[in-house]
Nucleic acid binder design. Sequence first.
DNA 1: CTGAAAGCGCTAACAG
DNA 2: CTGTTAGCGCTTTCAG
Lengths: 350, 350
Amino acid sequence: MPPPAQQGHVPVTLKDVAARAGVSISTASNALTGSRAVSAVSVERVLSAAAELGYQKNEAARTLRTGLRNAIGLVVPDVTNPFWGGMVSTIDRIAAESGFHVALTNTEFTPQRETAALARLVSRVDGILLFSTHPTGSAVRPLLDLGIPVVACDEAFELDGLGGVYSDNEAGARAAASHLVDAGGSVFGILEGPATLTTAQQRARGFRQGLQERGVLTTDIHAATAEYSFEGGRQGIRRLLAENPAIDAIFACTDNQAIGGIFEAMDMGRTIPDDLLVCGFDDISWSSRIAPSLTTLRQDAEGMATRAADMLLEMITVGGEPSVQVFPVELVARDSTRRGAGGESPVTSL
Amino acid sequence: MPPPAQQGHVPVTLKDVAARAGVSISTASNALTGSRAVSAVSVERVLSAAAELGYQKNEAARTLRTGLRNAIGLVVPDVTNPFWGGMVSTIDRIAAESGFHVALTNTEFTPQRETAALARLVSRVDGILLFSTHPTGSAVRPLLDLGIPVVACDEAFELDGLGGVYSDNEAGARAAASHLVDAGGSVFGILEGPATLTTAQQRARGFRQGLQERGVLTTDIHAATAEYSFEGGRQGIRRLLAENPAIDAIFACTDNQAIGGIFEAMDMGRTIPDDLLVCGFDDISWSSRIAPSLTTLRQDAEGMATRAADMLLEMITVGGEPSVQVFPVELVARDSTRRGAGGESPVTSL
DNA sequence: CTGAAAGCGCTAACAG
DNA sequence: CTGTTAGCGCTTTCAG
């Protein structure tokens, strides 16, 4: 009968396992990793020795030797927002399937935390998935020079050697403009996002372009800047409507803003969609739940997260080349822009 | 003039820095870490050499030598749910302040992913914050035996040596019962959670107790099991109301369920709160946004996350003892249980 | 205050 | 198929 399994705080090393199995350290290692042929008997003995001792591979030692950390860094602005939360969930699942773990940093939109996270991650992960809110080359260039694969996601980031996975924000926003004109809008408000966010810039630009194409005059377009949040939307729309009471159609850069805006507008006595049309961007799950349900541009969050994770893992494991991929978005028309008749939710791909 | 800074994929080691600074490796190390007194001149030379070469400390080597990983594992069921998302955000902030990074795993409520995550985390982190949905000692006991600090959070988990941070679920649910009776409920429905979740058990038990204390007969209490999600709530309430149309008050174990339930009930033609009173649990941000706003039991998510992270970091860094801490919850009465007059949102601490 | 050297646990040559 | 051995880069004795 074998002695009792190793307990307590003294770590069990490969040496212990080898000794108990009566083989050399390298045979024990190879039996465990399978990187070299080992006789069935030895494998069996090593495996049971490891199990009896409760052996746990020391990842730090393996990393030091091989240079592989089996970890990816994930830098996002706000996991509380279901748009990013869902992507985090997808990425975590894919990483886990490949045996990678995810080192998460939530920056809360601050450049300091983003920069700090990047610096901290350098020597701890094999690659980084970056949802940047302050895309400065100076923080990312060094990573690339160090040979660390980086894939930017959601927020566009132009840099040589950087992978990218984005939505077609401009096309989506143009479609929003056209849809709001069709729905009966005549004086327009834009709830823009913070200036550092490329998604905010692209969506605002696309929306203006779209209105212009439909012949709307610049004097009938008003804008306010607001945080990418429910509260940001409330405040933004309050300012917008206070300064320009004639506004009868609003485009918000995110659903969170749009929903905050809807609630604020209703509190101000507006009726949606009759007094005010509202269109968001993202299609978070809550958008179809609130009343009135929110017309929005659906991003393929799942698809983008999957592509970004796959691209990064390929860059890490087989030296895959970074590429830039743009995902189409689709207009989901709901009650917030549907005057008169109710009905189903038609979806238009762009 | 010094040669150009090191670029490219060849990693810069401490040896390189020491050579360039003209000091020994140990002096370079001490200059960087400050663990031993070093002359001002040497410090200066080492620091500038490190900066010029773009030196990045190799964390794996440091970990191998010191045994410190400066990482905590965070295992949660669903980051998409703002209740957990918010806690993840808080924990990440606190960890980052102490120089720790967070290895996140999203289990999506599956025991396999939880077990796998725990196994993968053992040799990669200094401690684990566990939001378990399948609290089995067999997965956690080994971690404790290995000397890895573990703090359970949200879902109660009884095990020697395990830290714990929980809400007082029973007291909260009792308060919900009393509140629903006061609000005019007479036939009650419970939207229970999955049986493996201790929060679900505690809340259901507390609610039944509370009803009993108020003299409600067992025959007037009906229950259905549902996932902790919006869709789970929809389905659960549909079954509940189909089988027991007399139900006029519902207690859901989570706000997500409650909100799904409200929407489903309204789709079924019920008016809330007049036909049906609804009370949730959590107080996620959306609960105050929907119409009718949701009466619920507010958990101190921020406080719990802070306490859990602090406790874990103390256990890791100064050998702090694990303890079990229960946070009070408070009833937030809103429109979903307020028949007749509208008004503000009174809050009752328990 | 500084340097030389040991060694953390593992993998991957390099011999058998 | 197996064993011996040389480090991966760092921190930390141990000697000056």
